[in-house]
Structures are given as C-alpha cells and as structure tokens.
Design a protein around this nucleic acid. Sequence first.
RNA 1: GGCCUCUUAGUUCAAUGGAUAGAAUAGGAGUUUCCUAAACUCUAGAUCUAGGUUCGAUUCCUAGAGAGGCCA
Length: 591
Amino acid sequence: MDKLIKEHLSMALEDLFSYKLSAEDVSLQPTRKEFEGTHTFVTFPFLKISRRSPEQTGYALGEYLQERFDIYKSFNIVKGFLNLEVRDLIWVQTLDHIVASEGFGRGTTKKRKVMVEFSSPNTNKPLHLGHLRNNFLGDSVARILRHAGYDIKKTNLVNDRGIHICKSMLAYQRFGEGETPEDADLKGDHLVGKYYVIFDKAYKAEIQQLISSGASEEVAKKTAPILLEAQSMLKRWEDKDPDVVALWEKMNGWVYEGFATTYATMGIAFDAIYKESDTYLLGKDIIEEGLEKGVFYKKDNGSVWIDLTDEGMDEKLVLRADGTSVYMTQDIGTCDYKYDDFPMDESVYVVGNEQDYHFKVLFSIMKRLGRSYSEGLHHLSYGMVDLPGGKMKSREGTVVDADDLMQEMFDTAAQHTRELGKIDTLSQEEALVLYKTIGLGALKYFLLKVDPKKRMLFDPKESIEFQGHTGPFVQYTHARIAAIKRRAEQYDVGGDFRAVTELHKKELGLIQNISKYPEVVEFAAKEYSPSIVAQYVYDLAKEYNGFYQEVPILNEKDKDLVNLRVNLSSVTAEVIKSAMDLLGIDVPERM
RNA sequence: GGCCUCUUAGUUCAAUGGAUAGAAUAGGAGUUUCCUAAACUCUAGAUCUAGGUUCGAUUCCUAGAGAGGCCA
C-alpha cells in the first residue's frame, strides 16, 4: 500500500514539477490521529522546486493523485502537510489479503548467513540481571533476523578459564571442605559464586593486614599471598597440572549444570557453544600473518602492535614481548575459528557498551587483515542495567541474581492471577505454566522495550509492573481475542466481510496498524532492535483494546460486519503472537 | 589527562529534521446486567544551559554544566 502511494507521488512530482525522485526515496508517514487522512506527505522540501506556497503545492499534488488514481477518497492540506485518505474498500481488500496470506510479516528468504553471539557467561558466578538483558536481546535479535529471512546461528562463547575462575577454585580448595551442590542445597553456579565472594573477602583481609604492617595500598593489592597463589594456580592450569585441571573440571561441571537450568527457565538455547579454554591460545599465527602483511609492527622489546592513529584510535598491543596473548590476540583468532565453523556474511556480537573501544579496534584489525567477513562484523552494544545505587558489582554483593529474579516474577504472577480468579478451570499444571508465561513475559518485555543502546534503571524495591506498558498487557489482549474466537464458533458468523464498504474509524486504524507489521520487522532487523517490535506490539494491543471497548464485535445483526470484526480480531491476535514470538515471549489462550 | 556515551513530566521509557513532544506509572475524576476491568474514558504535568545551521531542532553543529564508561 505505502509502496503504491510512493510510486504515485514520485510520478506526480515528475509530471507536475519535472522533478525526479525514485519511489523508494519518497518519505511518507502515517497521518496523526488529530487530522483527517491515512497517509501524510510533507511538501516543505519541495517548495523550491514547485516555486509555489506550501498550500498550492499540496493542492496540486492532491488534485493530481485523486484524478489519476481511484484509491484515494479525499485529501486535505494543513500548511506543508498533504494528508491523503485512502478509500475504505482498499483497506478491506488489504485485510482480505492479510487473512489469505501465510506467514504474514515473514521476510523473503535471503541467502546471507548471520552468526549471533551472546550470553558469554563467566563460570565463576551465576547469571545476574545484566546477563538477562544480554540473553533476551541476543535471542530476540536472532529471532528477528531469522524471521526477516536470514540463516541464523546462535552461539555462546563461555569464559571458562582465567584468573577469576582460579579465584573461586582456590577459595573452594581452602575453605570448601569438599562441599558439593547437594550438600549445600545450592545450584552449582551459585555454589561456585559463593566461593568467588569468599575469595574476595579473604583477599581484602590480607590487603588490610599488609597495609597495617606498613605496605602501600598499591603494593598490598599486588602482593597479597592469596592473589599470588591464584596466579600460580592459573599457571599450573595452563601447564595442565592434573590436580588443578581435575578441580577445574569438577567446578565447571557444576556451573554448566546450573547454567543449563537457568537457560531452560529463560527459554533460551544455542546452536553452538564455544569455550574459551579451547580458544585462548588462538590468534598467534594470525599475528605472524599480520606482521608479514605489514598490518602489525614489532617494537624493539619484541612486542607486537598495530597503529590505528590514522583512524582516530591509539596504538594497540596485540602480542606481549614474552610472546603471550592479550585479549585482542585471542579475539582475532576466534574470529577465524568461528568463520571456519559457520561461514557467515555477518557476525553480531551482543556485548555491553563498556567494550565499545575493544570492538572498534578488533573490527578495524580484521578489515586490515582483509577478512572476507570483516564488513559484516557488528557490535550490538547495549547499555548496562543500573541499580538506584549505581552499577552492579558481583564482588560487593550488589547484584540482582537471575534465578532469584525470575522466581520472584513467577511468584508475583501467580499471586496476581489467583487474586483475579479467572482461571479456575485450569489444572494445577496448566496454571503453573501460565504463571511462568506471564512472569517471564513481564520480565522479557521490561528489558526489551527499552532501546538496547541506552542504559536503563532497575529498582529492585519496585517490582516489575504487570499493568500498563508491559508484557502481560499484550498477553492479556491476546487472551481476550482468543476468548472471542471461542465464542464466535457458537455464533453463525459466516458472512462475506469483503462486502463491507464502509469502515468504522477504529477498524480502519487497526487494519492500518496491522499492515505495518512487515515493515516493522524489516526495520527492527536492520537496527538489531527488539525495542522497535516491542513498541509496535504494544501500540497494536492498545489500539485493539480501544476497539474492543467501543465496538461490538459479536452483537451486530449484519453478518458481514461481524465476520469482518472477527477476522480483524483474529489477524490482530496472529500478529501479536508473531511479534511477541520475536521477543521470545509466549502468549496464553486465557489468563 | 585523552577518547566514547548519555541528559525529555514526580518516576520509568518514546519520538527516520516535521503538525499541539507521545506512553506508562504515581496523583485527581469516572466506567462492569452485555464478547475476560491485568481493561477503558477524562484530568493535570517535561525537552540541562547558552549560542548556531534551517521554512521548521528533542533530533544536526559549537561551547558549558551534570552523570556514566573505556584507556593508562
């Protein structure tokens, strides 16, 4: 529909003012509710070409369109805005088309492969609220891209080695007394996290002691015995000391078990899991390659660098003088490693914005190395989730734990639902599923409705809403429509809605809103932004609720009209379901 | 110190350079004999400051204030 109007406008501009503008470049927007019409064209930019006043220009264009094409009912002009109104009949045909089409909103299949990497947990502590944003974003972006027609691979690069892992291991070795998750009645990841905190306490105590015996804080932080021991443990791990490796495997095993539960609760799965313990040595050969190509250079002490000052960045170390890797080294290697596994055209890294600079540098390096996929590298940089007191710090215990938060959401959903008492017919099992659907829906929607790039605030004292601009609001709308469909089966609906020629304003608004769905998906895929879908589906649900409230859907005598409204409701429900699925949120049939 | 990001109702979030800056929530006033009131209707309330570009700036540019991040 929009495409058609754009073509018309393009022709009009050429015929009237002999100005060439391709239909794609015509900008058209939906008319604001306060004004008459369905589509608005802004004429201000064309005044120089038409050499007329805004009103005259708009009038000329409007006249032209209405004379030549029969889809326009009327037009009006307010200053430089040309508001076009499309005939009701066209909208009924649009609805008919949507009802008839399979998979409305699904993008045409593209041959491009896209890898989406997200989650990237550390195996020294459980997942927290920040991870939830990361996971929901990554999962949703993958769903959106898949829906838009790309071939997707979801991957998770687990950070399972390094000094922080050794800290948990060391604390466990010292203070753990052989405790297991079963003994402690804790999930494996929570147990390991507990020892990570214990390490930090012991470490801080040692620092204090050193300071009181005269050391400077700086020295104390570097020479605390427990830290030195953790470092030596890392060295032993790298040398494959059997005892250390055995402990590492045992504790990581607990963590993986714990994570598996958490991912299952979140409803998230991956196509491939990579482990840093397999990739941390990669990249050194590429450093050699880069030296040969002249992309890198060697300093006198033997360290290898890249000079990015011509791109407004610094010089960056890519290999230490002693030949050991830095983060950048393994990330360079991992790029190729992932490409060998899945020859992607695009690769999306869902990583917090604290690493903006790191990825800028990494991508620039891969471009200079001439990698085929380097143009498709994209850092989906999302903002941190802040608490009212500032940033979350796992060591200081100011984290909102993912498992706890999800459980809290389920409990609240259960409580709300019972108070409303509308699901008495459901079995206990069905009710439990419903609580999870609603609780998780509220949480996911809460984290996804905000623009990913922006940092957001979460106040644990104020629980996440179930009313207003929320997941449950949208889910509720779907449940209502499901109820109508159940009722409609008892009615003799079967008219031919295509016979309807005049539409109520609410119906028209709804059809218009629904027909935008494919564009929304395309736009969200381009922007890697679930928030676009979230905002859209909320608007649609809100619009439907207004419709529902004011327009009788089943009580009309006119069969054609009832049929139209049932169909309209049904399509709305399908779009809601599809859009919510892009966010990874289920919609219930009743709630 | 260098670089990056952010600043919009009391609060949490919107707004491809376009019309009277939208929602939600909290506040005030209403709506249920009828398809699910987790809903709907009405009401009040905001663009950090100073310049600039433009027919038009929340959006772009410059400077300043405040918040956060990255790099040593």
